[in-house]
Nucleic acid binder design. Structure first.
Length: 545
RNA sequence: GGCCCCAUCGUCUAGGCAGGUCUAGGACACCGGGUUUUCAACCCGGCAACAGGGGUUCGAAUCCCCUUGGGGCUACCA
């Protein structure tokens, strides 16, 4: 490895970091870390219409949560800065100027409508559309005049037509493109901003990027970018390309952020009588906006989608990295799982800490075929990472999680939380842990009884009777410890010649409202005798006829 | 429509580049059993794949071609 590796992740800040982007970032990062190279974060915010001011911050926060740090980029600086493309327009202008002067690029004046018509025509003739290059390039004066007439002016790169463009891809090998299939693409938009295909070439060169690792969706852009690089930077060796397979969704097609609104919409439509006024309010929308959403005409932003889903109790598929955080997944899990989406170490290892991932990572082992994002396997990975992670780290993650979901369990101190973790062996997500212990922190007046649980264990059979006996025994106990509670419950079950479950379940529902909680003996001792007795009394009163 | 990529169990994949050791290995899921105070977890066992057709070769999951299927791109988005 003679040359120092430089990789970059170049997201456009349009919202949260989603799994696809996170995987790209991870691969770039892993390769840089593996080789002792440099990992750059560059924000591609050249689309004035789509940028939201906080999106870049959000993306960076999400990367940090995953443990992906950058050596150069926003917040840390570096020799190739600035790292926001919107702050580099003078650089791009310079190169556009040069290309124009050398007649390797030219002005165009078509409107989007006119271009659209041309495209349609090409398709009707079963041809691929390529922009028809004019015989004589318009002059600078022509451009001025057009501008003065209010015409939109763009600049196109004249793709050299002399020979096939051959891309050497680290994953797919040699891929040849016919130059006349590529067509002169726009490098500068009418608002003066560069297009992605232009800015990324200039920046990759200036930032000395050696390896471009990105999704396969960029494969078709590559010949054009490569041609541009050759014309612009004849002195610089081409970067190496590695196009990763696409991650597809179980819903079919590329995993997309649109899946969340789609899932919510489907859920709303499945609900016969829904209070649109209330729902609109929850989502911070006007009723008209909500109707537009339901009618498929508009899509509200993510926080709004989340809020509505939450109030309806609908579980949306996780797509963004924060979604996984909120569902109780560990960053260690995500990193491990994402790494295995399109890469593997070549042996049977699957569950790996990040250090091992870095050690094992190699671009030569990227997979060619698309892979499906398997949520069940993700859960299995999370279970394993929860088990493996050092206690202190897990505790930290749990605390972050509790804060973000605003759980009442945040009230617990570290010692208590640590004990709870011990009692949750086998938990699949942090949400499992939270769900099992939240009853302790709820306050007896706020217990919500789960209908199904109540029917099944209290109302059916002699659940209430059993509960009454349990209560009497508990009240009579001298010492309220786990051991004593266990002895008592076991002998009670024996007396009644039933399994422990028959005794424990009514009790569980009485103190938590559900059939799922920490082990029953610990649940009781954690709650304390007084609170336990009170909850049982409340339950008996409420459900006894 | 055009261009490009891909193809091993339901899913992720190992093996393919250097054909025989592959009656195809692992993991998740699933099914059966065990353990059990709930949910999980855990233990044991099982089911399950080289898309189809042609070549090349003594021999093909592995190399070549075609078909079929899946995916991506086709913007003054990135």
């Amino acid at each position: 490895m003679a040359e120092k590796v430089v990789t970059r992740f170049a997201p456009s800040p349009t919202g949260y970091l989603h799994v696809g982007g996170a995987r790209t970032a991870l691969f770039c990062w892993l390769w840089a870390r593996r080789t002792g190279g440099t990992f750059i974060l560059r924000i591609e915010d050249t689309d004035q219409k789509r940028n939201t001011p906080t999106a870049a911050e959000q993306v960076m926060a999400d990367l940090r949560w995953l443990g992906i740090d950058w050596d150069e980029g926003p917040q840390v600086g570096g020799p190739g800065g600035p790292y926001l493309q919107s702050e580099r327009t003078d650089i791009y202008d310079k190169y556009v100027r040069r290309l124009l002067d050398e007649e390797k690029a030219y002005y165009c004046f078509e409107t989007p409508e006119e271009l659209g018509a041309l495209r349609k025509e090409a398709e009707a003739q079963k041809r691929g559309f390529v922009y028809p290059r004019p015989e004589h390039f318009p002059t600078a004066e022509d451009a001025e005049k057009a501008r003065a007439r209010g015409r939109a002016v763009t600049v196109r790169f004249a793709v050299p037509q002399d020979e096939p463009i051959v891309v050497q891809d680290l994953v797919r090998g040699e891929i040849a493109f016919a130059p006349d299939d590529i067509g002169d693409f726009i490098i500068q938009k009418s608002d003066g901003f560069p297009t992605y295909n232009f800015a990324c070439v200039v920046d990759d060169y200036l930032m000395k990027v050696t390896h471009i690792i990105r999704g396969q969706e960029h494969l078709n852009n590559t010949p054009g970018q490569q041609a541009l690089w050759r014309v612009l930077f004849a002195d610089g060796p081409l970067p190496k390309y590695a196009h990763m397979s696409v991650t597809v969704s179980d819903a079919g097609g590329k995993l997309s952020k649109r899946e969340r609104p789609k899932a919510l919409l489907a859920a709303i439509k499945a609900m016969p009588d829904i209070d649109t006024n209330k729902l609109a309010e929850v989502g911070g929308l006007t009723v008209e906006q909500l109707q537009a959403f339901i009618g498929g005409k508009a899509t509200p932003d993510m926080p709004s989608i989340d809020a509505m889903a939450n109030s309806l109790g609908v579980q949306l598929p996780e797509i963004n990295i924060v979604d996984f955080f909120r569902s109780g997944y560990l960053p260690e899990t995500m990193v491990n799982f994402l790494a295995l989406l399109g890469w593997n170490p070549g042996d049977d290892r699957e569950i790996m800490p990040v250090d091992e991932l870095i050690q094992s990572f190699d671009l030569s082992r990227l997979t060619k075929a698309n892979s499906l994002f398997d949520r069940q396997k993700l859960i299995a990975f999370n279970t394993e990472h929860i088990r493996m992670l050092p206690k202190q780290k897990l505790l930290g993650h749990l605390r972050d999680y509790l804060e973000v979901i605003a759980s009442p369990v945040v009230a617990a101190d570290d010692e208590l939380l640590s004990r709870i973790i011990d009692l949750c062996e086998g938990a699949r997500t942090l949400a499992d842990i939270e769900r099992k212990c939240r009853f302790i922190f709820m306050g007896s007046d706020r217990i919500e009884y789960d209908d199904k649980a109540v029917k099944k264990v209290l109302l059916k059979g002699d659940g209430l009777d059993t509960l009454q006996s349990v209560r009497d025994e508990l009240a009579a106990m001298e010492e309220f410890s786990e051991d004593k509670i266990e002895n008592m419950l076991r002998s009670l079950a024996e007396q009644r010649s039933v399994g422990l479950g028959k005794v424990a379940q009514p009790l569980r529902v009485a103190i938590c409202g559900t059939t799922v909680s920490l082990p029953i003996f610990d649940s009781l001792s954690l709650l304390g005798r007084e609170e336990t007795l009170e909850r049982i009394a409340t339950t008996l009163q409420r459900f006894r006829v």
